[in-house]
Write a protein that binds this DNA or RNA. Structure first.
Length: 1050
RNA sequence: GCGGAUGUGGUGGAACUGGUAGACACGCUAGACUUAGGAUCUAGUGCCGCAAGGUGUGCAGGUUCGAUUCCUGUCAUCCGCACCA
């Protein structure tokens, strides 16, 4: 009986579904194991072979853990809010919920075919109101919390309010807005409710703030940085301006340090940790305050010695090099800096204004990309050096970013290359404050060898000493202190989109109010169209029923808004990462309608033991979800501050695109012709096979790279008479003489092709002169190409009627396509979807093959060429069980031989180690070796075949279940204990020693394993082959490593 | 520029803490069985060489009895961040 994977796989998939084999219980005596794959966004394109890579790995591990006696939670769901569905809705008017539902169904179908051990009863969808109820709930918790720097955790906002009532905010150590004013308890108690709310917003972990965004008026939306190219929108090329908008933000910066520290406690890939570290961007230094000199006064008497009275303005800067404070020769403000308008002198006003305006037009990314140009303008104002009291000119320059630090720098040209370049460009002083360093060519930034000079009290100190001393002195005069700065910004949480979670927020007197948790979820309203409103409001502005009736606790018609009982609701929606930031916890108790999860559930499951997903989420989902988890931990909802102890990034599977090469013309119009100009084209398209393409290209390059003179090569390029390039080469030309016979053959192939094309075009009489041919690679669908890169011409023609009338120039009867590794994408026709593979080879083959491709973390090109290897392995495996499968077992079952047992236990050991190390590719090889050996041994022993089926089952579960059943068992193999490895079957009585000379293996000798080094050495030296190798020389040294190797030096 | 990852046959990739480089698989070659085969089986297959032998893990060094593995430098490819003060 043959291995009928179609029947077997359908049978067991049905069995698992009907018996809920993989349903996890929240109550169990078994140890828990939580294995999680990142949930997908259900795109319209469906699943491709890259998606399952991580899922298969997680699935293998989950199944393995079940065999090992764990209660395994292995859920799957959908990150189903997102832009593509919305984009599609805008284009077609179809509700995103419908397309999303369709896409999910397609995904589910595809996932089911792959035999995953998901507990589908726990499926979540982020766009489902029952789910996003809890996303809204978390938002409310964040709103009702502040970050207490003293206890270093988030606390309920009430504790802050009670502090305000008692002692104001002067002593409060909190993460809050920079511009938070100081107030006393009396002030607070006297404030109006609105003022109190305004002030509290400055402390809440989610808050409303004016944020600069890339606003595209034409599209009526805010664009992400990467949606802007050269200052205009990527789609449509509309102008984009920087605009301030009131938006929800998340105070993630409060957690910067803890997010950084937490990385030390989790087993995540180093590159990913590095990315997060880099993104958080901690830098230590000092904040220094510079007083701005009174412009009027300094001009009037030319006296720049300040008094404590004339400091109307101060500039705060952050520096990582306070040790270089005596090297400051100017300051630079970001053009957007608030002080710019205030301090600029009348003389400089025009120049500064023009510069500021010019900068505003450039996007931040634009400015950052343009590193080379130095530009700036002098404001006319001066600041005062905190120690020397010398005046320091204040410039503005776009190399200073408003969004980093304080938007101002103290420029130390001798120690910073950007400052150096700026100073050189504008002829500003470059004082040298380094001992024995030449700064005539470039700045000196090496901290390690720094010795400070010309710096008063810092002279002779190293970077470290000087930094400490400078900070101490700044503190003494009250003009600075040590400070840690983070690159991380608070995260904008508003999106001007439709297809996202609505905020549970309505506005009373412009102040946001949270809807009571008991009234959640606040469901997304229906709208006529998914575009922004005509007044530029987000799509929710189109909803007619989008007002909150406080008395009825219900959404009502906008007409009823009276600002007494009925109030407008928030029009923004939440961003994509909202729904994914706690989904892993929701899986623990996904149908709970009373709480995000029950205490029992979270106490039992605790955290994710293994999380597998792509590295593209390094600074998005994987950072934000850690932030929310820390918050949930602070507020006592979850027991662990880090939700995933172990994380693995699976590599991307790239596609192998296929190309055909179309013959195109190089031509010019025949000027004398009076024929109407018409783009010439071949009456019958010609595609040439890869090797022709390659040979023609090579020949062209050969001539261009030859020894011929530049003049000749030029002629080759530009043309001789009416032809150029290869078309111009004939036996009268110099090019011809340098060709060998093979190249002449290639040339004659080309010439034949060229002539036939020319004949074709001239017969059309379109008034052109054909000069040369060019060959354009065109993507073809990879499904039309076989393992030998041969194109299935018939199917190619059928697929596209345009191709019916095409001439294929073949090589040896075949049309060979060119191949290139590219990212898998629809437009490149290199997407391979798992359905076709399942159809042809089955899910078990696909699972094995994806693992067999290579290490999980590595990215690799998809190439189906090798799949026959794992497929024939499964057939061999099936055959091994033939006596049980077809009932042909006659008489008694054979006892396992020592050889059988050795093979089995070797396999158990290796497979167990491999799974624990996530080295799934090598265990597939191990299975192959095992089956090959058992086949040679003609093993039919149940004592071998039963454990083997269990070993294979995590990888190829369908065939394992079937074989298990055929062996006479009822029920699933899923929880059968994993075979126990026993060392005793591997013990050998002798070892074949490699005998090497000077490190090179020459021959092998067999010795008993218990033979000692001395005896081995004697036996080896006495051996005739050794004497032969030595050829009379006396060995200088003999190294014997028992059980390993013998090395003779001599 | 900074940070990270990876370089091994024609291809995907093995080689555990330094100890027989190329396991396993694809492909290729030859053969067997077949009307046929993209089915199955057998043998071979890093490179040079008829062979003996030599050579070989991006490149150049170093440590070692012995290096794909450790160290230094360098090149290439890919990814992330990027005027970060």
């Amino acid at each position: 009986m043959n291995y009928d994977f179609r029947e077997i796989e359908a049978k067991w998939q049905k069995y698992w579904a009907e018996n809920e084999t993989f349903k996890a219980s929240n109550h169990s005596d078994k140890p828990k194991f939580y294995a999680l794959s990142m949930f997908p966004y259900p795109s319209g394109a469906g699943l491709h072979v890259g998606h399952p890579l991580g899922y298969i790995a997680t699935d293998i591990y989950s199944r393995y853990k079940r065999h090992k006696g764990f209660n395994v939670l292995h859920p799957m769901g959908y990150d189903s809010f997102g832009l593509p569905a919305e984009q599609y809705a805008i284009q077609t008017g179809q509700h995103p919920a419908i397309t999303t539902e369709n896409n999910i169904n397609r995904y589910r179908e595809q996932l089911d075919r792959l035999g995953f051990s998901f507990d589908w009863s726990r499926e979540v969808r982020t766009s489902n109101p029952a789910y996003y109820k809890w996303t809204q709930w978390i938002f409310i918790q964040l709103f009702n919390s502040w970050y207490n720097k003293t206890s270093d955790k988030a606390e309920a906002i009430e504790t802050l309010v009670s502090q305000f009532e008692k002692e104001g905010n002067a002593k409060v150590q909190a993460a809050c807005d920079e511009d938070t004013p100081i107030f006393s308890a009396e002030d607070w108690n006297g404030f109006s409710t609105k003022t109190k709310q305004e002030l509290l917003l400055k402390y809440r972990l989610t808050y409303l703030a004016d944020t600069e965004v890339n606003w595209c008026p034409a599209l009526g939306t805010v664009l992400a940085n990467d949606e802007i190219v050269n200052g205009v929108s990527e789609r449509g090329g509309h102008p984009v301006i920087r605009k301030k908008m009131t938006q929800w933000s998340m105070r993630i910066t409060a957690y910067a340090q803890r997010l950084l520290d937490g990385l030390d406690n989790i087993d995540w890939p180093q590159p990913l940790k590095d990315s997060q570290t880099n993104w958080i961007g901690r830098s230590e230094g000092a904040s220094v305050t510079f007083n701005v000199l009174d412009a009027e006064r300094s001009r009037r008497d030319g006296d720049v010695i300040s008094t404590s009275l004339n400091h109307p303005y101060q500039i705060e800067v952050f520096t990582t090099r306070p040790d270089t404070i005596f090297g400051v020769s100017f300051m630079t403000l970001a053009p957007e800096h608030d002080l710019v308008a205030k301090i600029t002198t009348p003389e400089q006003k025009a120049a500064v204004g023009a510069y500021v305006e010019a900068t505003a037009k450039r996007s931040e990314r634009d400015r950052m990309a343009d590193v080379k140009t130095v530009s700036g303008v002098f404001t006319g104002a001066y600041a005062e050096h905190p120690f020397t009291k010398e005046p320091i000119p204040i410039w503005i320059g776009d190399y200073v970013l408003a969004s980093y630090g304080t938007g101002a720098v103290m420029a130390v040209p001798c120690g910073d290359q950007r400052d150096y370049d700026f100073a050189k460009h504008y002829n500003i002083d470059i004082p040298n404050i380094f001992e024995g360093v030449d700064i005539s060519e470039e700045a000196f930034a090496d901290k390690a060898t720094t010795i400070i000079a010309n710096s008063d009290f810092l002279n002779g100190l190293s970077y470290k000493e000087a930094t400490k001393k400078a900070i101490a002195e700044l503190e003494k005069i009250g003009q600075g202190k040590g400070k840690v700065n983070y690159r991380l910004r608070d995260a904008v949480f508003s999106r001007q989109r439709y297809w996202g979670e609505p905020f549970p927020v309505y506005y009373v007197d412009g102040m946001p109010q949270m809807i009571d948790v008991e009234h959640l979820p606040l469901e997304l309203p229906e709208v006529e169209k998914y575009l922004p409103t005509e007044t530029g409001e987000p799509p929710l502005g189109n909803a007619t029923h989008w007002a909150w009736d406080r008395l009825k606790a219900a959404v009502v018609s906008n007409d009823l808004i009276d600002h007494v009982n009925v109030f407008p609701l928030e029009l923004n929606t939440m961003p994509g990462w909202a729904g994914s930031s706690q989904y892993f916890n929701r899986y623990m108790d996904p149908r709970n309608n009373e709480a995000i999860f029950s205490k029992e559930a979270i106490d039992y499951w605790q955290d994710v033991d293994l999380y597998i997903g792509g590295s593209e989420h390094a600074t998005g989902h994987l950072l934000y979800s850690r932030f929310w988890q820390h918050f949930m931990f602070d507020r006592g909802y979850v027991p662990k501050a880090e939700y995933a102890q172990k994380l693995i990034n699976q590599g991307m599977i790239t596609g192998t695109s296929a190309f055909v090469y179309r013959v195109d013309l190089k031509f010019h119009w025949e000027t004398t012709s009076n024929v109407e100009f018409k783009q010439p084209s071949l009456s019958r398209a010609i595609y040439i096979s890869k090797n022709y393409y390659k040979k023609f290209e090579d020949l062209r390059n050969f001539i261009l790279n030859s020894e011929l003179s530049a003049h000749d090569k030029n002629e080759f390029m530009m043309g001789i008479g009416f032809t150029k390039g290869l078309a111009s080469v004939n036996n009268d030309t110099v090019f011809f003489d340098i060709l060998d016979d093979e190249k002449k053959q290639t040339l004659s192939d080309f010439t034949r092709l060229f002539e036939s094309v020319r004949k074709d075009i001239y017969s059309q009489n379109v008034g052109v002169i054909v000069e040369d041919l060019k060959f354009t690679p065109i993507h073809v669908d990879v499904s039309l190409v076989n393992a030998s890169d041969e194109l299935d011409i018939e199917s190619f023609k059928k697929l596209n009627p345009e191709n019916l009338d095409v001439t294929f120039i073949r090589e040896e009867g075949k049309y060979i396509v060119g191949r290139e590794v590219e990212k898998m994408s629809k437009s490149k026709y290199n997407v391979v979807n798992p359905d076709a593979i399942c159809e042809e080879y089955g899910a078990d083959s696909l699972r094995l093959y994806e693992m067999f491709l290579g290490p999980l973390e590595q990215s690799k090109p998809w190439n189906t060429a090798g799949i026959t290897g794992v497929f024939s392995f499964l057939k061999k495996l099936w055959k091994l069980y033939a006596p049980y499968v077809d009932g042909s077992l006659s008489g008694v079952e054979a006892e396992p031989t020592a050889e059988n047992l050795k093979t089995l236990h070797k396999t158990i050991k290796k497979v167990e180690e491999d799974i624990e190390n996530f080295s799934f590719n090598t265990s597939v090889s191990t299975f192959m070796i095992c089956v090959n050996e058992l086949t040679t041994q003609k093993c039919t022993s149940r004592a071998i075949l039963e454990p083997l089926a269990v070993l294979v089952s995590p990888y190829a579960p369908h065939i394992a279940e079937e074989l298990w059943e055929r062996l006479g068992h009822s029920g699933s193999i899923a929880e059968v204990p994993f075979p126990k490895f026993e060392e005793k079957y591997l013990v050998e009585s002798s070892k074949e020693y490699p005998i090497s000379f000077n490190g090179k293996m020459r021959f092998k000798l067999e010795f008993p394993t218990d033979m000692d080094s001395k005896a081995i050495e004697a036996a080896v030296l006495a051996h005739e082959k050794t004497q032969e190798q030595l050829q009379g020389r006396a060995p200088k040294k003999v190294i014997v490593v028992p059980g390993k190797i013998v090395n003779i030096v001599g």
